Amino acid sequence: MSYVADPSASDGEFNRDTDYITTRITADGRDGYAVEPGRYRLVVARACPWANRTIIVRRLLGLEDAISIGFCGPTHDERSWTFDLDPDGRDPVLGIHFLRDAYNKRIPDYPKGVTVPAIVDIPTGEVVTNDFAQITLDFSTEWTAYHRDGAPQLYPDPLRDEIDEVAQRIYTEVNNGVYRCGFAGSQQAYEKAYDRLFTALDWLSERLENQRYLVGDTITEADVRLFTTLARFDPVYHGHFKTNRSKLSEMPVLWAYARDLFQTPGFGDTTDFVQIKQHYYLVHTDINPTGVVPKGPDLSNWLSPHGREALGGRPFGDGTAPGPTREGERVPEAHSAG
């Protein structure tokens, strides 16, 4: 996750830096990094919506034994994400305090923002990729030999074109749309971004009114990509980013849809509301210079009945739900809903 406002944009519009390290880990190793259990470490921060996607997909597919995971703390400075949650502030596998060290191992004096998620090659200590959109697709398509029994098809071949189309609109208008509102440098840019965001949310409400999931009758990559933004909407985006036409809890279809996913193993149990609020309200000092983290909102309503079962659909298709979250990877109970 990085935030780059384009100073040359005369209208104050926010532009995201999308120049990622795009090396892929594949079954045939064509980029020099072959799929190999135990070789790679997924570095994430629970606060980050882009990283949260990878946590969800890794859990749904059962890749815990194949790809280890390291958690950064919820805050960072201009230099790097850090492993504040680990003893001595060092990742126990990589042995580093700053994620930037792994970036510099791959590209000396790495000139760009250090982002999560990132996958690190453990033997060399080098970042392989931080291309968050491709990482989850490759988990579904390149790591199939290490999926758990009963793993769902999150990117089924017959639906890929439609998933890609829906996911692209979600990315440009919703995932990135909230940032376009929050980091707008002018009233004009903000109002334009605001209108675009809620136009897309209205479109999603219409799409989901009579179908349980975004594409087909099972959970797919598209649902994962939308969920992480919806989960942050009321705790952060509504106030902090001024996306305040409506709270998520005031948009009936999307609110029920989000609760349906939240109550599905792999979604709510990977969502840390405390870290989410700490990240946005403490890191974005230009937006929130006091560093005050809001106490609300009440999150217990995430566990209320959603009624979406009436629309049919099978969350995991012919597969099964993942088992309990692994020890050491659980969100603290006080950080979740309930």
Rank of each mutant, 00 (worst) to 15 (best):
R245G: 01
K105L: 10
A133F: 08
R100M: 12
G239F: 10
G182M: 07
F267R: 03
K105I: 13
D157Y: 14
E191I: 01
L85T: 15
L159W: 08
V174F: 09
D161E: 09
P92C: 11
P332R: 11
S10D: 09
D272K: 12
T264Y: 08
V93L: 15
A118C: 14
P37C: 11
W143C: 09
I107S: 13
N244E: 01
T18W: 11
F262N: 05
P7L: 03
T26K: 13
A133S: 10
D11G: 11
L94A: 06
F71E: 12
L63E: 05
S336H: 14
P152D: 10
L137Y: 13
V128E: 15
E250N: 10
T220P: 00
T82P: 02
M251N: 06
I21W: 04
T243K: 07
G307A: 07
I122R: 00
T129D: 04
E173C: 09
V292E: 15
R308H: 01
K105H: 03
V114G: 01
D11Q: 12
T290G: 12
A145W: 03
W302D: 06
T320D: 13
V166P: 05
S140Y: 05
A45P: 14
D6S: 14
A222I: 02
M251I: 01
N130K: 04
R207F: 00
L94H: 01
Y20N: 04
R160I: 14
R326L: 12
H306A: 10
T229E: 00
T270N: 09
E162W: 09
E191V: 05
W81M: 10
H284R: 11
G89Y: 14
A337G: 03
R169H: 14
K105W: 04
F71L: 11
A118D: 06
E327T: 14
P289H: 08
E329L: 15
I287E: 01
A45Q: 06
A167R: 08
G113N: 15
L201E: 05
P7N: 07
H284N: 09
L261E: 01
H76S: 12
G32M: 09
T136H: 08
T264P: 02
R308D: 00
I55N: 09
I163G: 00
L261Q: 01
A34G: 08
S249G: 07
A310C: 11
W302P: 00
I56F: 01
A45G: 07
R196L: 14
L226P: 03
T199A: 11
Y146D: 02
D195G: 12
D149S: 15
K247S: 02
P294V: 07
I219T: 00
A145F: 03
D28I: 15
Q153N: 05
R46F: 07
T75P: 15
P49F: 08
L230K: 00
Y146K: 03
G266M: 02
N244S: 05
E209S: 03
R207C: 03
S186P: 09
